[in-house]
Design a binder for these strands. Structure first.
Length: 428
DNA sequence: TCTGGGGTCCTAGGACCC
DNA sequence: TCTGGGGTCCTAGGACCC
């Protein structure tokens, strides 16, 4: 039996999450904005039809949205983080071999399903997800992950297919490979699209038929792998176990420019605290953290400044108090007055499992991990129960009144994670 | 006069993804 | 006025070592 992968994803996923809890949004154009209400990052077909592009800055389309009745939402990560778990639970019922690829996309291995039954199974899966979670999806089937991705792309673009496209069917494969442009291939961005064009490719079929040495020369091993995948030779495995993450970052733009040190300290301390939470959730630690902040290139005629500073810890840690102290040191060391800063963040790389990490010598910077872990456990438990930020360190950087913010002016309720926000349904 | 070669590690930058 | 955030992988080139 031949190998087969599927890729399922949620249509206009964030918008669909909003629609699940507000029936008035059906058939209405809806968009969801990025952090700080900056850009459109999810659009329903109705919004796309109005010409709203992916990543378009909101201030450029504000008037259009108003005149066309587009419903606009800030990102509601509590909601968007909760819905995929429900969707994946449904997928697992159809195949135990699953790779959760992104917040709204999962690969399944359907190699054990008879070829003739695959499309039927995928239609059933779509309908079940729709019925149980309210999220509309599309499914692509292919002999490799790259082909499954391509099939998913076709399923989304061609409504007549009913949301499922099967590129393991030779007729479908030949038909679509000749009609899809190279830039729609997973892994081909604008620079590589130009290279493929220069190599004479007008369709995915042309890319598939390239000489592997030529494509390797132009696009390195990445390109060669891609060509093999298009030919049906799998180079990418299903990653059922998510690899441990290698880096972690918390960065935010400010709703208003920041011009004084105390405010910057508040923002960076908050980011550092969040970084600690994320590291603890994975049992990971770091022995160095980078703090950065910079002005905005959109502030023309203003002096520009961009700094980043690496602060080394005596040993790996994920203790919020340790991280905050280190990050504040980084800020103070590099701060300069006279600039209007637009963004700040804390970044770590080279994460290690904390339990197995090298200790410092006692007295030479060794941290009290037991005490710290107990304190952080209590902190995390409080914040899980009462909401993020309910309990913060009393240290520098945490003032009673926040002097900086990120914009979320149009956020919907936390329907799925706050009892008081659960929708009430009346039946007569 | 003749002026090595091969390996590792690290970093910055590019490209891509959602 | 207003332009996101968080990841991964690959390569080239320099530093360093024996």
């Amino acid at each position: 039996m031949s190998r087969a992968y599927t890729l399922s994803d949620g249509n206009s996923f964030y918008c669909s999450c909003e629609r699940v809890f507000d029936a008035r949004l059906a058939r209405t154009p809806v968009i969801v904005l990025s952090n700080n209400d900056g850009c459109a990052i999810a659009r329903t077909p109705e919004a796309k039809a109005l010409g709203i592009r992916m990543g378009e800055p909101f201030f450029k389309i504000r008037d259009l949205c108003k005149s066309q009745g587009v419903r606009v939402y800030s990102s509601n990560y509590a909601l968007y983080g909760d819905m995929p778990a429900r969707v994946n639970t449904v997928y697992r019922g159809f195949s135990p071999r699953i790779e959760i690829y992104s917040i709204d996309e999962s690969f399944l291995d359907l190699s054990d399903v008879r070829e003739a039954d695959r499309v039927t199974l995928c239609r059933d899966m779509r309908e079940t997800v729709r019925a149980w979670t309210g999220i509309p999806t599309c499914v692509g089937i292919g002999a490799t992950k790259t082909l499954a991705k391509l099939a998913n792309h076709v399923a989304k673009k061609v409504p007549e297919l009913g949301g499922v496209c099967d590129l393991t069917d030779p007729v479908q494969y030949d038909h679509w490979m000749a009609r899809i442009p190279p830039e729609d291939i997973w892994g081909v961005g604008p620079p590589n699209a130009r290279k493929l064009e220069a190599l004479g490719c007008e369709s995915v079929a042309d890319v598939r038929d390239l000489d592997t040495r030529a494509v390797r020369k132009a696009m390195t091993v990445v390109g060669e792998r891609l060509v093999q995948e298009l030919r049906g030779m799998a180079c990418l495995d299903l990653e059922e176990v998510a690899p441990t993450r290698k880096g972690c970052a918390v960065t935010r733009s400010f709703s208003d420019r920041v011009e004084n040190l105390a405010t910057m300290e508040q923002a960076v301390a908050t980011h550092a605290a969040r970084l600690g939470e994320k590291l603890r959730a994975g049992g990971l630690g770091t022995d160095h953290v980078t703090v950065f902040f910079h002005t905005s290139e959109h502030d023309r005629d203003r002096p520009q400044r961009s700094v980043s500073s690496v602060v080394t810890l005596p040993e790996a840690s994920n203790d919020t108090l340790v991280l905050v102290k280190a990050c504040l040191h980084g800020v103070r060391k590099t701060w300069r007055d006279g600039y209007r800063y637009s963004k700040a963040g804390v970044v770590t790389t080279d994460l290690v499992p904390l339990a197995a990490s090298q200790r410092a010598f006692p007295g030479l910077g060794q941290l009290d991990r037991d005490h710290g872990a107990a304190l952080m456990g209590a902190l995390d438990a409080c914040n899980r129960r009462f909401g993020r930020g309910s309990v913060v360190p009393g240290s520098a950087g945490f003032a009673p009144e926040r002097e900086w913010s990120t914009k979320f002016d149009m956020r919907s309720p936390r329907y799925t994670t706050r009892v008081e926000k659960v929708p009430v349904v009346m039946a007569a």
